Computed example of a mutant assay.
Amino acid sequence: MIKLIKIKTILMTSVALLSLSGAANAALINLDNTYTLAPNFSSPRGNFHPQGLGYDTASGELLYMQQNVRRIDRSDIFGVFTGSTSIDFSHGTSVAADSTNYYYSNYTSNANGPDLYSKNKITGVRTQISSDVLAYGGYPIDVRDGKMYRSEYSTTYSWANLSSIRISNLSTIDSIDQTVTLDTLFGIADFGIDSVNNEAWVLDYNANAAIRRFDLTTGALLDVFAVGVDGLDAGLTYANGKLYVYDWVENGPSTLRSYSVSGVNVVSAPASLPMILAGIIGVFFIRKSSIAS
Rank of each mutant, 00 (worst) to 15 (best):
107 Y>M: 00
107 Y>F: 06
108 T>S: 12
110 N>K: 15
112 N>W: 12
117 Y>H: 09
123 T>S: 14
124 G>E: 11
124 G>D: 09
133 V>N: 01
134 L>D: 14
135 A>S: 13
136 Y>R: 08
136 Y>K: 13
136 Y>G: 10
143 V>R: 08
147 K>G: 02
147 K>F: 11
148 M>Q: 06
148 M>G: 10
149 Y>H: 09
150 R>Y: 08
151 S>H: 00
151 S>C: 10
154 S>W: 03
155 T>M: 09
156 T>D: 15
157 Y>Q: 10
159 W>I: 10
161 N>G: 14
163 S>R: 14
163 S>C: 04
164 S>F: 02
168 S>V: 02
169 N>E: 04
170 L>R: 06
173 I>S: 10
174 D>T: 11
177 D>T: 14
180 V>P: 12
181 T>W: 10
181 T>I: 09
182 L>N: 11
182 L>D: 14
184 T>E: 04
184 T>R: 04
185 L>N: 15
186 F>G: 04
188 I>T: 02
189 A>V: 02
192 G>L: 03
193 I>L: 07
201 W>L: 02
202 V>M: 14
203 L>M: 01
205 Y>I: 02
207 A>N: 15
209 A>M: 00
209 A>V: 06
210 A>I: 01
213 R>L: 05
216 L>M: 00
218 T>W: 12
223 D>G: 06
229 V>I: 10
231 G>V: 02
232 L>D: 12
234 A>K: 03
234 A>V: 07
234 A>D: 13
235 G>I: 12
239 A>L: 01
